[in-house]
Design a protein around this nucleic acid. Structure first.
Lengths: 154, 154
DNA sequence: GTTGAAATTATGGTCAA
DNA sequence: TTGACCATAATTTCAAC
């Protein structure tokens, strides 16, 4: 499936991880290729799935969604009949931007974004807490984001 | 600074959050504008910072970085002399893709990516655990990613 | 990987609503 | 103030080499 990636392929990905909308001409210059082979490599990386997608990253604070909360959720059981409806419910909630099924002492870790603490509290009350199968929720609030990147080291 | 965003501005951001590299012509069609005013709005959103940046999202598994780990870190103190060097060290480690200073029972939550558990263990031993001021580290491992998006609901 | 040409797109000015 | 239209410049894209 994944034919070997050489140094130039990785250079292309490094650039695109930082500037996803860089033009092919400039990308080619930066990785030391002419535009044609550079574009061929980008298409190959896209087709292979190494480049999954391109997205615009918005500034949550500027859009009135400045609060991020981690919610640790325990269900009443780990059987499929309990987990599946929870997972389905979570997938439909756009405020939940991440959900990890954990191996450790809690069932799920959720990352939720909200305008502020009041809004989050309302969201937990009205949505999270009402999902069938939820036993308890413990909220953890970041005071400061030290680092946050979508960049994978390659 | 942030002049009011109307319905079309939000539609533009919704599209760009999903397809960051969509061409202006197609973007314009989708939001019901002709290309010129659409591009003007995009530039405005970029300049205002509502659109922070564009990035390519890579597939970690396809690049041999299939493991994500959450590490909860406690320092020996919360004074600036303890925290500042830790923060600096974390910022330099590309394997740490996220670091949150927590308000709750642990000092920091880190998201670390690694090829596998052995590699993570080595990373914790050789890097994380050796940062000055670190008292203890507790590792939590996701078994399955239920949901993970960069999309902010707007 | 290179070159070059054709098709498409981005861009900015201008006018109209 | 905002959008549509048009002309130009730049880029993308795909041949053939």
């Amino acid at each position: 499936m994944s034919t070997k990636l050489d140094c130039i392929d990785r250079a292309i990905m490094r650039v695109l991880q930082q500037e996803g909308r860089v033009q092919n001409i400039e990308l080619a210059e930066r990785v030391g290729l002419s535009p044609s082979p550079c574009l061929r490599r980008v298409r190959m990386l896209e087709d292979s799935g190494a480049i999954a997608r391109y997205v615009a990253l918005l500034d949550p604070a500027k859009l009135g969604m400045g609060l991020t909360v981690f919610a640790r959720v325990w269900l009443i059981g780990q059987d499929e009949d309990t987990v599946a409806p929870f997972v389905e419910a979570i997938r439909k909630l756009p405020q939940v931007v991440e959900c990890q099924l954990m191996a450790g002492d809690c069932d799920f870790i959720l990352r939720v974004i909200a305008p502020d603490l009041d809004a989050y509290r309302a969201f937990q009350m009205e949505y999270l807490g009402r999902i069938k199968g939820v036993r308890s929720i413990k909220t953890e609030i970041p005071m400061q984001t030290i680092k946050l990147t979508t960049e994978i080291p390659i």
